[in-house]
Design a protein around this nucleic acid. Structure first.
Lengths: 148, 148
DNA sequence: TTCCTTGCAAACGATTTGCATTGGA
DNA sequence: TCCAATGCAAATCGTTTGCAAGGAA
């Protein structure tokens, strides 16, 4: 998404077409995710929203946003659910996971590198007779602050 | 692990050193995983073992095997727990996930390709000040049978 | 005997759902 | 008005745990 593009109208449009609404709590979830450096757990979102959105409503907001393709659910290595903006909003990215503090941050890689990655992935999948539709790379490491 | 190497003694040894035992149900779990083409959910394992190992015992067996590093827990994109043999038993591999039928299969990639992958990963992590300790690549695609 | 392991049932934590109520177009 | 969204409490699902019984060294 190019900088400066207003995404609210696009999101609202998706909700309209689905016959549902881009309500206040759903807006708040999107805003919180936009501010975050990486994916968040439902519990973290709950805290960030000052617990003003009850958990059950938060889960429903996440479900509604997932339904219209605005957010995506992932899971870290230990199975914890992570919510993030979908790639058309956040851009294609990968995850860097600190094995020490557990923080997950988004990382975008330069186009030429991404091209190399794609070709390797195609190569691997072709050998198994798969047609690639997407990929995900999680890099596990130790972040600067945990290392020092 | 080179073919023909008996792994049972090595596993038994790990249990011995831990002061625990390589019991029948734990052996069955390992055997089932060795037969499978990829990781299995606890429920699938339960079925494969003809439900002879009660779920709670199965979970305890998985925990014990994880404890001694024989099996590893992962999670698919939808958060479902997957159990697989650790890499020293199954070899370093990645996962190919069929977006249609959901099956996950292990895939080993040739050494030269793996080297290319590692260097790209190091490159990405270095840019963010991370020290790499591991990586995980999940390729999402459509398998041959779901495509035809 | 001494621990480890097992099976059952109860407990748990995360997520979902039923239902009555509220709210926006 | 009408239908979607909300809040609460109860239900559900996968997983874990307490406890008493069974089993190997």
């Amino acid at each position: 998404m190019s900088p400066g593009t207003a995404v609210e109208p696009q999101i609202a449009d998706r909700f309209n077409r689905a016959g549902t609404r881009f309500t206040e709590s759903r807006r708040r979830v999107v805003a919180a995710l936009q501010r975050a450096p990486g994916p968040l757990t439902p519990a973290e979102l709950h805290r960030l929203l000052a617990e003003e959105v009850p958990l059950s409503s938060l889960y429903r907001a996440i479900a509604a946003l997932t339904e219209v393709g605005v957010v995506t659910r992932t899971h870290d290595r230990s199975g914890v659910t992570l919510i993030e903006l979908s790639e058309w909003l956040a851009g294609h990215h990968h995850h860097l996971v600190c094995r020490s503090c557990g923080e997950v941050i988004d990382i975008e890689i330069p186009q030429p590198t991404e091209v190399r990655v794609r070709s390797i992935i195609e190569e691997i999948a072709a050998g198994a007779g798969y047609t690639v539709t997407g990929h995900r790379i999680d890099i596990e490491g130790t972040c600067r602050s945990c290392r020092s």
